[in-house]
Amino acid sequence: MSGAFCPWCGTRDCGDCRRPAYEAPRHCDGCGRRLRVTVHPTGWETRCRRCGTVSTSAEAREAVRLPEGG
């Protein structure tokens, strides 16, 4: 999640939002559009109907575990 749009409020270059607790991303970080979110018992998947981008909780966990350069 390194795009120009905030995944929580959907605005460009927001910079103000902190990730809410217990939430999957709500907006596409590539275009800001509201995501279609599927929440399942141990994870989530989001899909942007404009960009076609799919992201998952497994990827998000991995990104936290293995930060860039680490």
């Binding site: 217990y22 939430e23 999957a24 979110v37 929440v39 399942h40 018992p41 141990t42 994870g43 989530w44």
Partner: peptide, 11 residues
Amino acid sequence: GNYLTTLGRSP
């Protein structure tokens, strides 16, 4: 685990 549209703490 998770709820319908929000997340819960881990099982």
